[in-house]
Computed example of a mutant assay.
Amino acid sequence: MTLRFGYGTNGLTDLRLDDALALLADLGYDGVGLTLDHMHLDPLAPHLAERTRKVAKRLAELGLDVTVETGARYVLDPRRKHGPSLLGPDPQDRARRTDLLLRAVRVAADLGAQAVHCFSGIVPPSVDEPGTAWQRLAVSLTPVLEAADAAGVPLAVEPEPGHLLATLADFHHLRGLLGDPPALGLTLDIGHCQCLEPLPPQDCVRAAAPWLRHVQIEDMRRGVHDHLPFGEGEIDFPSVLAALDTSGYQGLTVVELPRHSHAGPHHATTSLPFLRRAADTPPATAPKRSAP
């Protein structure tokens, strides 16, 4: 297989960024999913371009590729998780989230990143008409997509359980609203597929392949949005990784364990051997799971 594995820094928040990057390089990872947050590369602190150049130099020294992720919980608001969103009632709040994504595009371009990840946000209680939320999302993302297109870095939107854009079908709805812009791609979280998609995760990979720009991976159970260490959920990883390998996907497959930072070095150490074993296991030897 030609798959390339990374680990997300949102699962290593107790480590300094340089220490996290050195750990991943020492363990043999191909890259990193870099979440822009206050404890690592703070997108709101002064001298962002200068700090980004230093990170780019370090990544090059360590031989690590990178994707830029924007799912930090409190980077914009210390009181509201993932707030403000692209869907809120206040235009200035929505503009703050758009500005964060524009900063992420600039960071990604300076790092030579493969993609910028984002998600839609949860529909506010004040929104009675779904069309209103979709319109806000489309308007908010338009300048980000224009910047991403100019920078040559795809914007990879992630279907997130509980959000407006929660499924692959929702991603295609957004594509239609925006007129299928070339910079718009997809982040596929394999656990989310297990959690709520009608198709098994390996079939989701095949269906998503033409738009796939970023992949996150962890274990998960059906109907429960809880990112689990490998082996603690229900996912057939040999089949998933085989589907990724044959799909033509060229990006990083990034381990996503944000709630396990307290044991981040341990999970980073054990996750890569698990994935490599699964990648070397023929799918036919794994238990077959029927579609839910």
Score class of each variant (00 low, 15 high):
160 E>W: 11
160 E>L: 07
161 P>Q: 03
163 H>L: 08
163 H>T: 12
163 H>C: 14
164 L>D: 13
164 L>T: 12
165 L>W: 12
166 A>W: 04
166 A>E: 08
167 T>P: 09
169 A>K: 12
170 D>H: 15
171 F>N: 09
172 H>A: 08
174 L>T: 03
175 R>W: 01
176 G>W: 00
176 G>R: 15
177 L>D: 09
177 L>S: 13
179 G>E: 04
179 G>R: 01
182 P>A: 02
186 L>N: 04
186 L>M: 12
190 I>P: 06
192 H>F: 05
192 H>L: 11
192 H>S: 02
192 H>N: 03
193 C>Y: 06
193 C>W: 07
193 C>P: 01
193 C>V: 07
193 C>Q: 12
194 Q>F: 03
194 Q>Y: 02
194 Q>T: 01
197 E>I: 08
200 P>Q: 14
203 D>T: 01
204 C>S: 05
204 C>Q: 08
204 C>I: 10
205 V>S: 03
207 A>K: 04
209 A>L: 01
210 P>E: 02
210 P>Q: 08
211 W>N: 09
214 H>M: 14
214 H>E: 13
216 Q>K: 11
216 Q>S: 13
220 M>G: 01
220 M>S: 00
221 R>S: 14
221 R>G: 05
221 R>A: 13
221 R>W: 03
221 R>V: 13
222 R>S: 15
223 G>I: 11
223 G>P: 04
